[in-house]
Structure formats: structure tokens, C-alpha cells
């Protein structure tokens, strides 16, 4: 593993300044960053630990809740108010990764984690998303990949992103403290810019805000074994009065808002992923059933 410098600033401005240096990376729990560094996917020269910024509170805000960027998934999963009022968030936080990774991993880190594609994470291959020429998955083994064609067919991995998208959450960042819709945190990678995050250099997530509690919400996911598995697909549903919001991960590059009447719309499936259409349809139906009045 390459060596790097480590800093743990105490103020948001200091963190932003440190992160505006080239090859600097923000770190929450480090569970994704350090593994990428190990595998040579990242070559960060400095790591800026955001856990000294005091962004680790869960607090009621208006009719909703504000969740600090460095709240761990475990603490989010254990929060009684979240469990009662935002079931989908509790369920997604509790289902992600493994218990230890939930103790370490942070809310912002979970939202900003890289894709789990086995080509992206292959130490000996440099795929398109990593700046190379080839999406190895398209020509190779993409049994667990997405349902829509594109330059990259990897899938969004964050369970929390599905839940928060269904909850219509916003995200505060260091340079946009007024907040942006969660969907705007993400961007489709392009030939010019292979990042799937719409953050400026030095910018980092400081909090997630859910504006109001749904009348009902639920998270449905499928994994490859009974615990400790990234989601093959995950579907979050939230009902606000008679409005339904349905969001999915595991099926396309970015967390995706689905049409409750036609969850599969725009997701034709690829040669090896047609099975995921059946899965997505089933999970969506189940999630919707759980939130229906």
C-alpha cells in the first residue's frame, strides 16, 4: 500500500482546505477508502479524517431529522426515533455490509462509496470507470451488474441512498450548506469525468436532512447469503399521504427513482442480468405492499 499523510482537522474550513490539495481524500470510517488504497485503485497522498468535525449527531429538525455526515451506520440503526419515524432508513442502515463495517462506516461514506464492481476493484485491471478504455463487465462477466446499457454497467451500492432518495432527503455539503437534493449528489460518469459524485474539489458532505417523516416506509433487499452481502438489488418505498416514492439501488449506475406504476421502466436488462428485472419487480411490489395504507 502507498503511504499517505493523515490529518484530522477540527473545523470544516480546515477540512475543506486540506481536501482542496491534489490527491487528498476525505475519510469517514475508511472502510472503502482504505480498501481502495490497498488495492491500488486510489493513490491518495493525504487522507483527511472528517470524524474530528463534530458531525456525528442525529437531531430532530422541523418535521424531519438531520443526520451528521460521520454518524455511523450502526448508530443510525440503533436510533430509536429513526426506527420509529423513518423505518426505511433504519432498515437500510441495519442491512448494509457487516456489523463491524456498520460500526465504522459513516452515513456520508456510505452515500459516497465507490461501486462494488469486481472489475473496478480488480487490482490488475484499469476499467473505464477508473480511467481506462474498457468496461470489462460488458464484454465479460456481468451477472451482478445493472439493467441499463451505458459506458459503465456497474451499479449503485448504497442501501442508504435508496432509503434517502425515497424519503426525498437533501444533502448539506461544506460549500453548499443550504443543501441539495440527494439525487444531485450523483452524476453519471462521462468520458471527461469518470466520477459518479457531483462534488467540487474539496467539497464534502456534512449532513443529510430528511425534511419530513413519511406515513409509512419500508426497505426490501436481496443479497447473496443471509447476512453480510452487498445488495443484489434494494428497493425503498415511502408513502407521504397518497404520494408514493420508490427508489432502487443495485440496478443502475446511480440510485434511481422508480415509477411505482412501472418500476422496470427504462431498465431493459443486459445479456446476463435479465434475472434482475424479475428481482426488482418482486422487491418493488413487496416494498409497495408494505407501505400501502
Amino acid at each position: 500500500m502507498r503511504t499517505f499523510a493523515y490529518a484530522r482537522p477540527a473545523r470544516v474550513e480546515d477540512a475543506a482546505a486540506a481536501l482542496s490539495q491534489p490527491a487528498a481524500r476525505a475519510m469517514g470510517g475508511g472502510t472503502d477508502l482504505i480498501t481502495q488504497q490497498h488495492r491500488g485503485i486510489l493513490a491518495a497522498e493525504s487522507v483527511v479524517d472528517l470524524r474530528g468535525l463534530g458531525l456525528d449527531a442525529i437531531a430532530a429538525e422541523g418535521e424531519g431529522v438531520r443526520i451528521g455526515a460521520t454518524v455511523t451506520l450502526a448508530d443510525l440503526g440503533r436510533d430509536e426515533a429513526v426506527r420509529e419515524r423513518f423505518a426505511v432508513l433504519h432498515q437500510a442502515a441495519s442491512a448494509a455490509a457487516s456489523p463491524q463495517l456498520r460500526e465504522m462506516g459513516t452515513v456520508a461514506g456510505n452515500l459516497c462509496q465507490q461501486v462494488r464492481c469486481w472489475y473496478f476493484r480488480h487490482p490488475d485491471l484499469t476499467c473505464w470507470l477508473r480511467g481506462g478504455d474498457t468496461c470489462y463487465a460488458q464484454v465479460g462477466d456481468h451477472r451482478k451488474h445493472g439493467l441499463e446499457p451505458g459506458d459503465c454497467i456497474s451499479v449503485a451500492p448504497s442501501d442508504l441512498a435508496a432509503a434517502l432518495l425515497a424519503l426525498d432527503a437533501t444533502v448539506d455539503t461544506s460549500s453548499r450548506p443550504q443543501g441539495i437534493p440527494l439525487a444531485d449528489l450523483y452524476r453519471k460518469a462521462s468520458d471527461e469525468n469518470r466520477s459518479t459524485l457531483a462534488l467540487a474539489p474539496g467539497e464534502f458532505v456534512t449532513a443529510v436532512v430528511v425534511p419530513r417523516a413519511p406515513d409509512a416506509s419500508a426497505y426490501e433487499r436481496a443479497g447473496e447469503r443471509h447476512a453480510w452481502s452487498f445488495a443484489l438489488a434494494g428497493v425503498a418505498a415511502a408513502r407521504f399521504g397518497d404520494q408514493l416514492r420508490l427508489a432502487a439501488i443495485g440496478v443502475s449506475n446511480l440510485p434511481r427513482l422508480l415509477d411505482p406504476a412501472d418500476p422496470l421502466a427504462g431498465l431493459p436488462g443486459l445479456e446476463q442480468t435479465a434475472w434482475k428485472r424479475r428481482l426488482l419487480s418482486g422487491l418493488a411490489g413487496q416494498a409497495l405492499a408494505r407501505v400501502s395504507g
Binding site: R116, W118, Y119, H122, D124, L125, Y136, V139, G140, D141, E224, R225, H226, A227, W228, S229, F230
Partner: peptide, 23 residues
Amino acid sequence: VDPTTGTVVNAGLEDYKIPTLAD
């Protein structure tokens, strides 16, 4: 095994899944 490069794509315990207590 990736058919085009001939390399193993799941040589770690995240993608190669052995049973857990829950199984």
C-alpha cells in the same frame, strides 16, 4: 474467471461468499 482477460474477478471474501452464522 473473466473470459476475456482470464483473471479471477472474485479472489476476495467480499465477492467469494462463504457461509456466515446467519446461513
